[in-house]
Design a protein around this nucleic acid. Structure first.
Lengths: 197, 197
DNA sequence: TTGTCAAGGGCGAATGTTCGTTCTACGTTG
DNA sequence: CAACGTAGAACGAACATTCGCCCTTGACAA
């Protein structure tokens, strides 16, 4: 019985912390903010997390896992066109749309935090390298089929595509209403590929 | 006589604060950190800035001005090829190279801070809109000359190009050694344009 | 030249606040 | 009644900011 309740409390705290962090950033939100948002007392929260940094690490870790999962989907079901990579990663038709902006905002905070946390920076680089590998594989296959110039290292092209995703996330975080479809059309135009839908 | 010394002290404080902020972020940096870095006392610093937020605002404002200037250069001297936009904005051959990573790191912090500061967010949107306007103009001209499909709104393509820049900045902030030339080659490959150099 | 004085700039200890964290006592539940 | 969770007061540390004092400087009078 304690097992599931323990996990539920943990989630309750993490969800509350996530909302606070999205709203105010990691260091501008106080423990008091988190306690209030979670509707718990200090004693309760510190039973599940040993410090504020612990909570930050957990939240950041989940945010990066979300990104890794998004790119992993590309590896699982390779899209026929390269520009669909963006759609897939950005989850054009993915469940909680309300969460997508918050995820983008949180990710920007994670980038900033990674600049001062070596362990978080290491994990971020891991995820980025993983994305480069996955997308690089897709690029290489397109090169084999002659759909892309062969002389360029696939990783370079993959870097551009993942940078495209990161750049879009910035816009979504800042504006909130950035349109993935319009973005994809912009990419299509740049790639001089006639839109197929 | 006080006039120039006043400005010099202000710069001294801002430069010190910038170093601190790049290293530790806005909110994880204490006033004590800034005082130590600037080699000044609290009383001295508070003679030139009325609060920590005041210093943050000044630093963020300068960072965004730097970005605006980079895009402004494109408007002043339009590059012949669209992919050169990235080179120009990222300043492939611009003076203090040591500063470029720090600028990228600072900009990421600014993005994060903009998520919780309405005034900073407004300024950031201004700069982004300005970039969209400048690059959109270039895109429209390329469309007129038939170098890009005409059916797509220039702003959409401009969004993609500026997102490309933002995405590259993230990589430069995180890795520090992101290579603009390799990046440009990746873009060229995606655009299926034979490299001219 | 020398002495005086007003003002500006700087210092750093002091202040009150807020932070993250701990601890003890209390309720609830099996 | 034990065992477990929870509450909330309490704590020391660290924070941003202020305040009163001191040193330097430049103008001016003697």
């Amino acid at each position: 019985m304690p097992k599931e309740h323990l996990e539920a409390r943990r989630r309750q705290i993490l969800d509350a912390a996530r909302r606070c962090f999205v709203r105010n950033g990691f260091h501008a939100t106080s423990m008091q903010d988190v306690l209030t948002e979670a509707e718990l007392s200090a004693g309760a929260v510190y039973r599940y997390f040993k410090s504020k940094d612990d909570i930050i690490a957990a939240i950041a870790s989940e945010a990066l896992a979300e990104v890794a999962a998004a790119f992993g989907a590309d590896a699982a079901a390779p899209p026929p066109d390269l520009d669909d990579v963006v759609d897939l990663v950005l989850g054009v038709e993915r469940p909680p749309l309300s969460r997508s902006r918050e995820s983008a905002q949180l990710l920007v905070q994670v980038w900033a935090e990674a600049l001062r946390s070596p362990s978080l920076s290491a994990r971020l680089k891991e995820v980025m390298a993983e994305a480069r590998g996955v997308i690089g594989g897709l690029v290489a296959r397109h090169q084999e089929r002659g759909r892309l110039p062969a002389g360029v290292p696939p990783e370079h092209v993959a870097d551009v595509l993942t940078a495209l995703v990161d750049g879009f996330l910035v816009r979504r975080a800042v504006f909130g209403d950035a349109d993935p479809v319009a973005f994809r059309n912009g990419i299509r135009a740049l790639m001089s590929v006639p839109a197929s839908r």
